[in-house]
Measured scan of single mutants.
Amino acid sequence: ATNIVGKVKWYNSTKNFGFIEQDNGGKDVFVHKSAVDAAGLHSLEEGQDVIFDLEEKQGKAYAVNLRIK
């Protein structure tokens, strides 16, 4: 899925991951530091509006192509 809109539920910059809540009511999506770095960001803030693509690997969904809304 592409261009999914959501809000950062939480992001832990020490542990380098967090979760994004989808605006469409879907399951929360894992986001890793690598996606944050690829977006040219240092971190994510709770409540921040983002747009992302959804990829699945080994049955787990995660956010890629992250951008600030």
Score class of each variant (00 low, 15 high):
T2E: 13
H42N: 13
D53L: 03
V5P: 09
E45N: 13
T14F: 10
G18S: 01
V64A: 09
Q22L: 14
E45L: 13
N65K: 08
D53M: 04
A35Q: 09
Y11C: 02
L41C: 04
H32W: 04
G26W: 15
I20S: 00
L41M: 07
F19W: 14
R67C: 04
G18L: 02
Q48Y: 08
E21T: 15
L66H: 00
H32P: 04
D23T: 11
F30H: 02
G26A: 12
Q48T: 12
K27S: 13
K69I: 04
S43V: 15
I51T: 13
V29W: 06
V64Q: 08
L44T: 01
F19Q: 02
V64I: 10
F19V: 06
L44W: 03
V50H: 01
K33N: 05
V50C: 04
R67L: 08
G25E: 08
F30V: 03
V29H: 06
F17P: 00
E56Y: 14
S34N: 07
W10A: 03
A38K: 14
K57T: 11
K15S: 12
F30D: 01
V5W: 04
L41R: 11
Q48F: 08
G18R: 00
E55L: 12
D37I: 15
F17M: 06
T2I: 14
G18T: 01
G26M: 12
K69P: 03
E46V: 11
N3P: 04
D28W: 06
N65L: 06
V5T: 07
G40A: 15
E55N: 13
N65T: 05
S13G: 09
I20P: 00
Q48K: 14
I68W: 14
G47R: 09
R67G: 05
A38Y: 08
A63Q: 00
V29L: 04
V36Y: 03
K60I: 06
L54G: 02
A35G: 04
K57D: 13
H32A: 05
E56W: 08
A61D: 12
N16C: 05
A63I: 03
Y62L: 10
V31C: 04
F17C: 03
D28T: 05
E21S: 11
N24T: 14
A39E: 03
K33V: 09
K60P: 04
A1S: 09
D49K: 12
N65G: 06
E45P: 15
F52V: 04
A61F: 15
G25L: 09
V8A: 02
D49W: 11
G25R: 12
V64T: 12
S43E: 11
E21L: 15
A35F: 06
A1C: 04
Q58P: 08
A1P: 14
Y62A: 11
Q58S: 09
L44G: 01
N3A: 06
I68K: 12
I51M: 14
V29F: 06
E56C: 04
K7W: 08
I51W: 15
K7M: 06
L41P: 03
G40L: 06
I20F: 06
D49L: 10
V50K: 00
N16M: 14
F30E: 02
N16D: 05
F17N: 02
G26L: 14
F17G: 03
N65V: 04
A35S: 15
G26K: 11
G25T: 11
V36L: 11
D49G: 12
A39S: 07
L41G: 09
K69A: 03
G18K: 00
H42L: 14
D37Q: 10
I51C: 04
S34D: 08
S43T: 12
V29E: 01
G25A: 09
I68H: 10
G59P: 04
A63Y: 00
Q58T: 07
H42T: 14
K7I: 06
F52E: 00
S13N: 15
T14P: 13
N16V: 03
I68F: 06
D28Y: 06
F52D: 00
E21K: 15
I4G: 05
S43I: 12
V29N: 02
K69T: 05
E46A: 11
K7L: 05
Y11Q: 01
K15V: 13
E55V: 15
Y11K: 01
G59Y: 08
K15R: 13
E55M: 13
V64F: 12
K15L: 10
G47A: 15
A1R: 06
K60E: 07
G59T: 13
Y11V: 03
D23L: 11
E55H: 09
I51D: 03
E55K: 09
E21Y: 15
G40N: 12
D53H: 04
R67D: 05
D28Q: 06
G40V: 04
D23W: 08
K7C: 03
E45H: 11
G18D: 00
V31H: 00
D28F: 06
V8R: 00
G18F: 03
I68R: 10
V36C: 04
F17Y: 08
F30P: 03
Q58G: 08
V31A: 03
L66N: 00
I4H: 06
K27H: 13
V64M: 08
G6N: 01
N3M: 06
G26C: 05
L54E: 06
K69G: 07
K60S: 11
E55P: 02
K27W: 11
L44E: 01
K57Q: 13
A35P: 01
V31N: 00
I20H: 00
Y11S: 01
N65H: 12
Y11R: 01
K15C: 04
L41V: 07
D37K: 09
A38Q: 07
A35K: 06
I4R: 08
L54K: 15
A38I: 14
A39Y: 03
K27D: 09
F52A: 03
S34M: 10
A35L: 03
K27G: 09
A63H: 00
A39C: 03
K15G: 05
L44I: 06
K9L: 13
E46F: 15
K7A: 12
N65E: 09
E55I: 14
D37P: 02
V29K: 02
K7Y: 06
T2K: 10
K69L: 08
N65S: 06
V8L: 04
S43L: 11
G47H: 15
E21A: 12
G6L: 01
V36E: 01
L54S: 06
Y62D: 02
G18E: 00
G40E: 11
D37G: 13
K69Y: 06
V31R: 00
V50S: 01
K33F: 13
E46C: 05
V5F: 12
I4D: 02
K60Y: 15
G25C: 05
F30Q: 02
E56M: 08
Q58W: 12
K15I: 14
N16K: 12
W10T: 04
R67H: 09
N24S: 07
A1K: 12
N24K: 13
D49E: 07
A61E: 10
Y62E: 08
S43R: 08
D53K: 03
I20E: 00
A63D: 00
F17T: 02
D28C: 04
A61W: 11
V31K: 00
V64D: 05
H42W: 10
A35R: 05
F19N: 01
T14D: 10
L44S: 01
V5M: 15
E56L: 15
Q22E: 08
G47I: 03
K69N: 11
